[in-house]
Design a protein around this nucleic acid. Structure first.
Lengths: 369, 369
DNA sequence: AAACCGAGTGTAAGCGCATACATTCGTGGA
DNA sequence: TCCACGAATGTATGCGCTTACACTCGGTTT
């Protein structure tokens, strides 16, 4: 790795000017075939790889799109404490036998979310000749991370609420910003989200059919989640379409974790009566709830119907399988990149707001018997 | 988004030279406190975000690390066909009710692999002040993708076998390369992998204890997989340590898919006798095998023990829960970045080869009753 | 008081490419 | 044969930074 060759080296080697080398690499058709071959041969021989930095600087476009997610601080601190890594154990190797006595792994929903959106975004970016840069906000320099990214990309796709509004406004002065999964809001950004409200409304209409309002229970997510707000809105719409005042329906506040579902089960078991159907704001909570209910001898769906939201794999593997709403997370990522591409084509057009449809998956956990 | 401010704008606004602005941003301690405050105020006021391209070009370091994986071509073509996206349905929204009659989703192992490694790598990169760029090789311009990345990063972490050796050699002339999960091999690159062999050896010793060689069966992966080769090696070692010639053990060749497990079950059911224990080269295959065996009335583990390799979540949710080997994929990503950081510190040091330990998770699918 | 010193700041030279513009080449028509 | 004109190539500039080096200035040292 002595010293990477530059355009100058290639030009000299091929006996042409650097402009010709550059053209061969960016618009090959502008160069005579014979010249092109000569240059390409030199490129191959020297192992020339153009500098992205120089390209970006000269062309004022980097060909890179950024994908930024907020992270959970707590999770990373735990990881830090456990990990020893290369320096501590350079020769660590071997295998340890462990009697795994079970307890389902707590899957972190945001991660799954992240994974799928990322995959979709990467695919679409690739199709359009972009490279993806990913960043997860962490700790108090989260803002620094996203600023860094903003300086290196042609456009920034951000999960909603991942940075303060003021910061986002500043970043958007430098690069176009597409907001993913945010609340419906009138602002200057392009938005891509899923039909949270419509999905929950359809599911609720199905599940609550024939039930009195007080036979229902809504197990919510954290109060500051726009996702939860939209789902709750859908829940309310379904009831109000039947002329029911949604505020009469009992609600239990959770936080999207499995544990929240377990707590809710405990609370319900201790109370005087059990609802006939429990609509949960996400799958993790619904799974925790089912598990804890069943542990107390309460049957799903015979005694109580349970539904979730997200469509995580564990829901399909649970017993009974969990009725839920599948969000097309990978499409979310793809759509975000598509919207970004459109924005980069024409920076003046009015902000776009895309809403992707969801699928309500009816499974055994909500089956009337 | 009129025109992004540059150092010159900030310098003029703060009444200093561009060198001072640059210093405030890169080595704040070299600047008098009063000056620093003045500059930072201007930065804030103007919403200045430094250009990564210019920085990279001038400093000869980009602060970006690349993570490159090969992809499955087939998978992406399918996605393409299905996806409509923004342009086709700009106002698509709503919810569709679907009776989900089941059939476990086929989880694509490489994706999970990718997700976890990525997560670990991102975490470690962040801790060290790097940003991550991700790329998945696809189609015939896969080489172009990775070349592009190489031009934009300070170092490239690549999954083994993702590009031809020649290409990798060329790339490594430009940036340091760390190979993840590759075969043990003497070459000029840094390597990070998991203890495939040791893990499979430990598991086999446990499972095969007290069994005759012909009561065993090995259900392998594809012939060209270095992972499979290493696992097979561990399997053999375990037997040979007991003085058994591993070549006398029956073997069935699969390809890491669930379907391969189902096929194997059919084949075994049609044959004259059933082994007492089946060691599979990965979890997907093991799960497909268990499922198809049980569908034929063959009980696991009462009639036959089954083990996997990977530690995917579905294995913990299966009935019975699948004995397997958990690879620390996220640690793999983290270690790769650590090794890269070390390499960037000193480019002359001898190539490192790290091997991370695995955990053998003993669960019900291999429990003697 | 002269010479010296170091902290703080400014000046200017690139980094490696894309591209506007200038120049040369090749070709066909007169 | 010569000229015109488009195609192919070369020249030169600047993208927005970092950084080596030069410079200023107040405070020491002798």
């Amino acid at each position: 790795m002595a010293k990477a060759p530059t355009v100058y080296d290639v030009a000299a080697h091929a006996g042409v000017s650097i402009a010709t080398v550059s053209r061969v690499l960016t618009r090959p058709d502008d160069v005579r075939a014979a010249t092109r071959e000569k240059v390409l041969a030199s490129v191959g021989e020297l192992g020339y790889v153009p500098s992205g930095a120089a390209r970006g600087l000269a062309a004022r476009r980097t060909g890179v799109l950024g994908l930024y997610f907020p992270g959970f601080d707590a999770m990373d601190e735990i990881d830090d404490a456990v990990f020893t890594g290369v320096d501590d154990a350079p020769h660590a190797t071997g295998a340890e036998l462990v009697d795994d006595i079970g307890g389902a792994a707590e899957v972190r929903p945001l991660n799954l979310y992240f994974d799928e959106v990322l995959r979709g975004a990467e695919l679409e970016a690739w199709r359009r000749g972009f490279v993806l840069m990913v960043g997860i906000g962490r700790g108090d320099n989260a803002e620094q991370t996203v600023r860094d990214m903003a300086g290196r990309v042609d456009g920034l796709v951000m999960l909603a609420q991942s940075v303060p509004d003021g910061v986002m406004a500043q970043l958007s002065r430098r690069v176009p910003v597409v907001v993913v999964a945010g609340p419906r809001r009138e602002d200057a950004y392009d938005h891509v989200s899923v039909a949270n409200t419509e999905g929950m409304r359809a599911l609720t209409e199905h599940v609550a059919a024939g039930l009195e309002p007080d036979e229902l229970l809504y197990l919510s997510g954290p109060a500051d989640s726009p996702d939860d707000a939209e789902r709750w809105e859908g829940f309310c719409q379904a009831l109000e379409a039947r002329g029911v005042d949604a505020s009469t329906v009992p609600i239990l506040r959770g936080d999207f974790t499995r544990e929240a579902g377990r707590r809710a089960a405990a609370e319900l078991a201790a109370g005087e009566r059990m609802p006939r159907a429990i609509v949960c704001a996400n799958d993790q909570t619904a799974l925790g709830l089912m598990e804890a209910l069943q542990a107390r001898g309460i049957r799903v769906p015979e005694d109580v119907l349970v539904t979730g939201f997200d469509g995580i794999e564990a829901g399909a593997l649970a017993t009974p399988r969990l009725t839920t709403i599948r969000q097309p997370m990978d499409d979310l990522g793809r759509a975000a990149i598509q919207v970004m591409a459109r924005r980069l084509d024409d920076r003046e057009q009015a902000p776009l707001s895309i809403r992707l449809p969801v699928k309500v998956l009816l499974r055994e956990s909500s089956e009337r018997r």
